[in-house]
């Protein structure tokens, strides 16, 4: 079945393709965006040692409910432009960047270790929508 592409996805994908073609990187269309995601995480988490294999798993889980069209469009833009540059294009892409970072951080040991720069940060594979996911919630009993 052909992927369903919304107008927004087409525009984002075309933007990514255009930028990629301009840079002579036609490989971008067919590659894996996990490299772009890893580069993004390294940029916003400087000095943090990331478990690369689990970043791939994170990306898989994060996009698990995306349509093929959305995966193609966003993946292309991320590969061609990078996650951060894509975010600069539109508020929705900026939100996606933040949600991606959030998904990785809250479903990893990042907030659970004393110093995230002292230990390898590993994403724990977790079914999307699993209960009790927030590491910040105050569950102290009623007075």
């Amino acid at each position: 079945m052909a992927p369903r592409l919304s107008r927004r996805h087409v525009l984002i994908g075309l933007g990514g393709l255009g930028a990629g073609a301009a840079a002579g990187t036609s490989w971008a269309v067919f590659g894996d965006p996990s490299g772009a995601v890893l580069a993004f995480l390294r940029e916003v988490l400087p000095g943090v040692k990331l478990d690369e294999a689990s970043v791939q798993t994170c990306l898989r889980d994060f996009t698990a409910n995306w349509s093929r069209g959305k995966k193609l469009a966003i993946g292309t833009a991320w590969r061609a432009l990078g996650v951060r540059n894509t975010a600069a294009l539109h508020a929705r892409m900026e939100k996606l960047e933040r949600l991606l970072l959030t998904f990785f951080l809250v479903n990893s040991n990042f907030f659970r270790v004393r110093d995230p720069r002292a230990e390898t940060i590993v994403y724990y594979s977790r079914p999307v929508g699993a209960p009790c996911a927030s590491p910040f919630t105050d569950f102290s009993p009623p007075a």
Binding site: V44, K95, R98, T102, L105, V106
Partner: peptide, 16 residues
Amino acid sequence: NHYNLYGLRTEWGRWR
């Protein structure tokens, strides 16, 4: 009180 609307912030240490 949930971060699924806009996500955490991207600046180091100011996530929440």
